[in-house]
Simulated assay, not measured.
Amino acid sequence: MGEHEELGGDVFAADCRARVAFEVLANRWDSVVVFVLGENGPMRPRALLDRIGGIGPKVLNDALRRLEYNGLVERRRYSEAPPRVDYTLTEAGFALLVPIRAMGTWAARYADTVLASQDRVAARRALPVD
């Protein structure tokens, strides 16, 4: 079996399972929610809002629904008065912490390089063309 056959197709082809991982990581808030749940354990939506900061309730709710749909978080309802809901990572969600942390390490090392490159290209594009 070739190195990429277990991914279900040619590398990065339309049917490649590796694309699933990139799609899951593509939304910045989804990765942040997974990271925060991984670092803090099960949390209620209000606690997630407070811990993350900069995210609105609707955006958080959308992220939690996407993550639940993708099998990365589990929504747990408690029969209490008033009703209580919290979210926890599934096994797949916990496993996603490895690449998320790797991306964080990459960002810590190369974010300044990327931002400097963006500034250089933007400055070049702003120059008038003769």
Rank of each mutant, 00 (worst) to 15 (best):
P45G: 11
V85C: 00
E3N: 10
G9P: 04
L89F: 01
N70F: 10
V59K: 09
A126F: 06
A122P: 07
L37T: 02
D15W: 05
G56K: 08
R46K: 12
D15M: 03
R46A: 15
L72G: 01
A122M: 11
L48P: 00
M103T: 06
G2T: 13
A92P: 06
N40D: 01
A14V: 06
D10H: 08
R77H: 12
P45F: 03
L89W: 00
A21C: 13
R19S: 12
E80S: 13
L48I: 00
V85P: 00
L127D: 13
V20T: 15
R28A: 14
L127P: 03
L97M: 10
D112S: 12
A14W: 03
I55F: 01
C16L: 00
C16E: 03
V11P: 07
D15E: 12
L37K: 02
K58C: 01
F35P: 00
G41N: 05
A81K: 14
L60D: 01
L37A: 03
A108Q: 14
A107F: 07
G104N: 14
F35A: 09
P83Y: 03
P83V: 03
A21F: 15
S31W: 07
G54N: 05
R75K: 06
G8Y: 02
D15P: 02
G53E: 07
G8P: 02
G104V: 08
D30S: 04
F12S: 08
E74C: 02
F35H: 12
E39C: 11
G8R: 12
R44T: 09
V11S: 06
R28V: 14
R120D: 15
S31R: 07
G53I: 02
T113L: 08
A63W: 04
V73G: 00
R65D: 00
Y87W: 13
A47L: 10
I55Q: 02
A13W: 04
R66A: 04
D62V: 05
G9K: 02
V24Y: 12
A108K: 13
W106L: 07
G38W: 08
Y110D: 06
